[in-house]
């Protein structure tokens, strides 16, 4: 059965929250409130997370791996480089001296952490991506949008809920 995408715009967060709650409460066949609903907002909203329910964030695992790998890579690259370089003493210090290597390891630890965190962000947030065609520039101003993906049969029920809460605008298109 083919799917359809629906996008409704609301002027304030309270309204949007009510809509989401109602959508979650209503058991409409062909619509799963947990997976098929996306809320788009102009600012970061702790409330959105509250009413959408807890969704895990995995970025910090990338951070951990990146930082540890960065540090290890730093230390072994540097020590290995020093050991492979001509066996020449400098300033009476050991060929593999610890204090400088720790400083560089520390920098590499941060470098790895930052770079892989960014990578993790892109992966977890699904960026860069093509914008979905159901998008309103109002979202980047002050509106909050609710995007749902439903079976064709459920469209009218959803639409009714949107209208009931005085959606400012409703867009609809055929889903994939």
């Amino acid at each position: 059965m083919s799917k359809r995408n629906l996008l409704a715009l609301y002027g304030n967060f309270e309204e949007a929250e009510l809509v989401v709650k109602e959508l979650r409460a209503a058991s409409i066949s062909g619509f799963n409130a947990g997976d098929d609903m996306v809320v788009k907002s102009p600012i970061e909203h702790p409330e959105v997370e509250e009413f959408l329910g807890d969704k895990p964030v995995y970025v910090q695992w990338f951070t951990l791996v990146g930082a540890v790998m960065g540090g290890l890579l730093g230390f072994f690259l540097i020590s290995g480089g020093q050991a492979n370089f001509y066996m020449q003493l400098k300033g009476g210090k050991p060929i593999v001296p610890f204090p400088p290597n720790f400083i560089l390891t520390y920098e590499m630890f941060i470098l790895g952490g930052v770079f892989i965190t960014i990578l993790g962000f892109l992966v977890c947030a699904g960026l860069p991506a093509k914008r979905s065609s159901l998008y309103s520039r109002k979202v980047s101003e002050d509106n909050i949008a609710i995007l749902v993906e439903v079976e064709e049969a459920a469209v009218s029920a959803i639409r009714a809920i949107f209208v009931k809460h005085k959606a400012l605008e409703i867009q609809e298109e055929a889903g994939k």
Partner: peptide, 18 residues
């Protein structure tokens, strides 16, 4: 391709903080 979806904001916040 930022759209301000809840998923983007969630990851954004953690990333920025980290």
């Amino acid at each position: 391709g930022w759209e301000g979806t809840d998923r983007q904001w969630r990851n954004f916040r953690v990333t920025y903080l980290t």
